[in-house]
Design a protein around this nucleic acid. Sequence first.
DNA 1: TGACTTATTGCAATTTATTTGCAATAATAA
DNA 2: TTATTATTGCAAATAAATTGCAATAAGTCA
Lengths: 133, 133
Amino acid sequence: MDTIKKLIKDKGQRFTSQKKEILCALQQKPQTVLEIYKAVNSKKNSMDKTTVYRILTNFLDLGIVNKVQLNDKEARFELSNRKHHHHLVCEDCGNIENIQLPEDTLLKVVKKKSDFKIKSHSLEFFGVCKHCQ
Amino acid sequence: MDTIKKLIKDKGQRFTSQKKEILCALQQKPQTVLEIYKAVNSKKNSMDKTTVYRILTNFLDLGIVNKVQLNDKEARFELSNRKHHHHLVCEDCGNIENIQLPEDTLLKVVKKKSDFKIKSHSLEFFGVCKHCQ
DNA sequence: TGACTTATTGCAATTTATTTGCAATAATAA
DNA sequence: TTATTATTGCAAATAAATTGCAATAAGTCA
C-alpha cells in the first residue's frame, strides 16, 4: 500500500480516500467496474461510478492494476503486484481462479516462429470448476 | 461453404444472402462487427448493423465462428473451420497474425494443477510487428 | 410456377458500458 | 490556515450491443 502511495505521489498526483477505497476493494481475482463499484459502496461510503472508471484508468497508466479481458465484454481489473499468472474461468458460476504455469518454452517457440517483439500475453482457460462439475 | 450451408439448413434455418455475404467477408483474421459491417457494405449491398450482430451471434451458436476478445472492448469474430491457433497483435498498427503453437505440455500441467474441467482457452500475444519495429 | 408458412431482415428505440465537460470539493504545500 | 490545483460528482454524450415489431424473402408443397 505504501509503495503504491509513493508511486502516486511521485507523479504529482494525490492519494485520495477514493483511491484508497478502490485499492482495498481490489482482490487478486479480476473484478469488473460494477463489482468494484458495488464493493466500495456497500460500506458507508458513496462513490460515483465515473470515479471508479477514472481511478482504474489512472491505476492502469501507473501500472498499479492490470486489465483483464475475458470472454464477456466488461473489462476486469486486478492488482498487478502479484506474481504473473493466468486465469481459470468457470462458465457455470463465473468464478475465477489464478494459476501459475511454466511458459518459458512456449514463449521461446513464439520468438523463434515470429517477427513480433512480444511485450505481453494473456492466457485464459474456460471450463467448469470443481464445485459445478 | 457448402458444409456451412448444410449445417444451417439442418437446423431448420435459412441460408440468406446476408449470411452468405458475411461468410465471404470473414477472413482468418479476427474482425470486429464494424469491420465486417463495412466490408459487406463496401460493395453494392446494404446490410443493417443489427443484422451483422444477429448473424454473428447465430454463427457463434452453430460453431461456425469463434469469438475473440483482445485487449480492446469490441469483440472479434473469425471462422472456426481453421486449425486451432493463437494471435499476435501489433499494438502499433493493430495488425493481427495467426500463430500455431505446441501447447500439449502446457495443457497437461493445467490439468494436473487444477480441478477445473478445461473446455477451451485463449492465448494472445501483444507486441510490435516486424513492420512497425 | 405460384401460393403459403415462417425464419429473417431493417428500422427505430432501448439497454449497457464507457467517456467527457464543468463546477464544486478536498489533498497537499507553503 | 490559506492557496493551488488535482480530483470528484453529477449530468449529459458517445459507443457497443440488444430488443420489438412490421415488412420481406427463403424454402416447401401443391
